[in-house]
Computed example of a mutant assay.
Amino acid sequence: MIVSNRHRFIFAAVPKTGTHAVRQALREHMAEDDAEQVGLFVNRRFPWADLAAIQHGHLALRQVRPHLGTEAFTGYLKFAFVRNPFDRFVSYCAFMLRGGDLFQQRPREIMHHMLFVDPPEGHVLFQPQSAQLVDDDGTTLLTDMVGRVEHMQASYDAICARIGIPTRALDRVNGTRHDDYRRYYTPALIDAVAARYAQDLDLFGYSFDGVR
């Protein structure tokens, strides 16, 4: 997450949505009194002890609100990027087995294990994207803008225009190696991902084939 007092924005870094590419671009515009929490590639913590203790940068918008106050939180542009949950789940599985070719050799077995045998419920990368973006009621989005990984550069350009900062071409950072996500699915896996990430599909308008 990045909180910019200089440009009055909050970037909620949803895992597996190109967050490190966005972070790198946004850092070029950060001032000394801006804050970032991140634990990969660089190690930075928020100045608030309870959030700094979490040890990663994928914080929920509702977690930072008490530290900013209602007026600032309401007035800052709050944005994030989201991704088709079916694509994101494949990327998650490939990412967790990076450094080898196990996912490339047995993708459906790995996906089945993650969904049915031993789901990593407590892992922030496995949780729904909406978990970081909704209010305490669990349904109301706190974001003012939501970019899409499927249109990453165009979304980033639009967000920069809204913030009032120059845009630039995003780098590819921390990507995973896998084919088109549709190739990995069976009907049972489709149903399982649809059930687990039902709120993401509904809130962000995705289906198995893309944006509805």
Rank of each mutant, 00 (worst) to 15 (best):
V90M: 08
P107T: 06
M152E: 01
D171M: 08
G99M: 14
Y156D: 00
D101N: 05
D101R: 01
L141I: 05
V134L: 04
P128W: 09
L133Y: 07
M114N: 00
R108F: 06
R106S: 01
G138C: 01
D157M: 07
M152N: 00
R182Y: 02
D118V: 13
T176W: 04
D171S: 13
S91C: 06
R183V: 07
I165R: 13
T167K: 11
A158S: 11
G138E: 00
D157E: 13
P119T: 03
R172K: 14
Q104V: 12
L133D: 01
G122T: 13
V124W: 13
R172F: 09
F86C: 11
Q132I: 00
T139C: 07
R177M: 08
F89Q: 03
R168P: 13
D171H: 08
R182T: 07
R177P: 01
M96V: 11
T167G: 15
R83L: 12
C93Y: 05
I163D: 14
N174R: 09
D179K: 08
V90I: 15
Q104T: 14
F103A: 06
I110P: 04
F89S: 05
G164S: 03
F126N: 06
Q129Y: 12
E121S: 08
L141N: 04
I163G: 11
V146G: 07
P85G: 12
V124A: 11
Y181P: 06
A161P: 07
V124H: 12
D101W: 00
P166D: 09
L170W: 10
D171G: 09
A154H: 14
D180K: 00
I163Y: 10
G138W: 01
G147K: 04
F103H: 05
H178G: 01
S130L: 01
L141A: 03
I165V: 15
L115P: 10
R83C: 11
L133C: 02
I165W: 13
R168I: 09
R108K: 06
V173M: 11
